[in-house]
Amino acid sequence: MAELTKKGIGGFLARQGILVAFVLFMVGFALANQRFIAIDNIFGVIRSSAILGVMALGVTFVVIGGNLDLSVGSMMSFSTIVVLDLHDTLGPTLAIPAMFGLTLALGAFIGFLVGYLKLNSLIVTLGMLSAIHGLTLTWSGGQNMDIADKQGTWFSVFGQGSIAGVPMPIIIFGLLAVVLGLVLSKTPFGRKIYAVGGNGQAATFSGIPRARVVFFTYLISAFCVATAGLLQASRSLGSQNTVGQGYELEVLAMVILGGASLLGGSGTIVKTVIGVLIFGFIENGLLLVGLEFYVQDVVIWLVIILAVWLDIAAKRGRLWSPIA
């Protein structure tokens, strides 16, 4: 009986380890520094996590579908630069849909290559990382992009505004998380993504249009990237060409931290949101207890490996790998 309970706790820890870790972190930091759980601090953390968080939502779809998307960082730079540039030429009302259209077109191209042509997603998106960076530089002429009249535009509302005291980026992130969470967990399309990522061949044999499903996961990812670009542009009203550089791997790390398997077929939006928040709160918590910003990188490294390790250890029933 005692053993059973132990096994139960162990199993729970392994399954929900990331949640447990999250709670422990929160409690620990809260005890160490009261400011940590102050509402404005929490808002601050979520707001600064929102841009990467929005991208992580999209990448979750791609990863559950059994693929990778390494182009999101570069694509996000593209969206940011494009919307800033078009803001001054077309005006904000037209610039936003135009930027979304262009970003979705890039997503569709990747979706076509990976979904319909069945090319390896790692290499395709690696290539697109470089290609889109080229597009961005072409668009901007290599210069930083700034809005001419920073005071007089309503465009800043997405990044800087707030409704009832809640910052806009949090509202947008939350709204998107709820909508995409419902799409993934409750709709037939969501179910098909899990099937395609879990066992693509079985999905085909069940009459699921695998190529189309993969295509749409990249469209969703592109939509999220466009939203992130909008938030970034609106917050800073000016940007470098490389604003999203390196985000692709950071975002992927958040998704994996949330428990999505790189093999596809598992993961949820809720878990990804937890992954995003852990990133944000660890950084914030460590700063508040007086540690330097780079300590978070090291801590997150350990957390990621521990999380994935415990997950697969629970599945194989032993802690250490069977590799000879």
Binding site: T187, P188, G198, Q201, A202, S206, I208, G265
Partner: peptide, 23 residues
């Protein structure tokens, strides 16, 4: 390899081909 998505539950596997109609 072809019949089942092993990581999915029983119900979801069974209704997979018609999930579009069960809404």
């Amino acid at each position: 390899g072809q019949g089942l998505v092993l990581g999915m539950n029983c119900r979801d596997n069974m209704t997979l081909p018609q999930v579009d109609d069960l809404t």
